[in-house]
Nucleic acid binder design. Sequence first.
DNA 1: TCTTAAATATGATTTTTATCATATTTCATG
DNA 2: CATGAAATATGATAAAAATCATATTTAAGA
Lengths: 143, 143
Amino acid sequence: MISNSSKYAIKAVLFLAVHSSEENKIMVKDIAEPINVPQPYIAKLLQELAKRKLISSTRGPKGGFYLSEADVNRNIMEIVHVIDGEKKLNACFLSLEHCNEKNPCPVHHLINASRATMMKNLKGKLIKDLVLDVKNGKGKLPL
Amino acid sequence: MISNSSKYAIKAVLFLAVHSSEENKIMVKDIAEPINVPQPYIAKLLQELAKRKLISSTRGPKGGFYLSEADVNRNIMEIVHVIDGEKKLNACFLSLEHCNEKNPCPVHHLINASRATMMKNLKGKLIKDLVLDVKNGKGKLPL
DNA sequence: TCTTAAATATGATTTTTATCATATTTCATG
DNA sequence: CATGAAATATGATAAAAATCATATTTAAGA
Ligand code: FES
Ligand code: FES
């Protein structure tokens, strides 16, 4: 499905979405523990996300990671794309070169529609929407 | 999603479903090439499937792999379960311990319904049904 | 400007998955 | 019943993913 790294990254971003702001930056050691991911590992992922502008950071004392206004308007798939690369989730279930209607593998029709709606849902949901859900009890934290 | 090994295994089983029978056993070297999987690799997978009774085999001269009547009444998920283990596909998208409605992670509602129908489709489709699809041009081979 | 606290860059190690190799067992056939 | 053709059992190697470690850079504040 998606890599372990992507899952960790999403967990971290959600944590930041709920707990951080421009005025309240959080450093990795305070992120790693609550989301239950080894610190050096999540550090590397956060650095990658920051480099790709999906999250914000400043270094030095009082520094840390946080989500800007722009950052909370991203969707989850953008995170996955940065960590795992573009294609993974839309790849053919049986690893055909191209997954499409023209040359479908035998299981294509069994999974394609569901996969598409899943993807639409994920792409349509912004980080800030997820935070609302959590506040309304529709999704549970911590992870 | 599912492992490479599972994909290979499915491809091999489909190949057997279309080309083999009790009277027409096929040996690994004649399976490996058309499905585009290295021979020692698919050999190991086929052996595992045979041991778990998802496919049939006999050894010695004139031996090989084939699908019995019982074998073609299996569904694809059974193959995945043998190769990857039970849970993978129904695991929480964010790796929570348990994925369920009672304690859903924030993305649970975005993916759960689609995932469930995908699973239902895969479990409801027997190997022999897939062969029919292929014969009717609904799914393409080779892989 | 000096010290210190933080992210960053880079890379090493470990674990898992994928791939390959080979000796052993079974079975059909002469 | 001997021979050879096939799967089987077992394990070795290679590649990728996950995890851990550390030296460097940046920025705040004394
Ligand atoms: S072609 Fe295989 S899933 Fe689309
Ligand atoms: S709880 Fe995460 S996907 Fe169901």
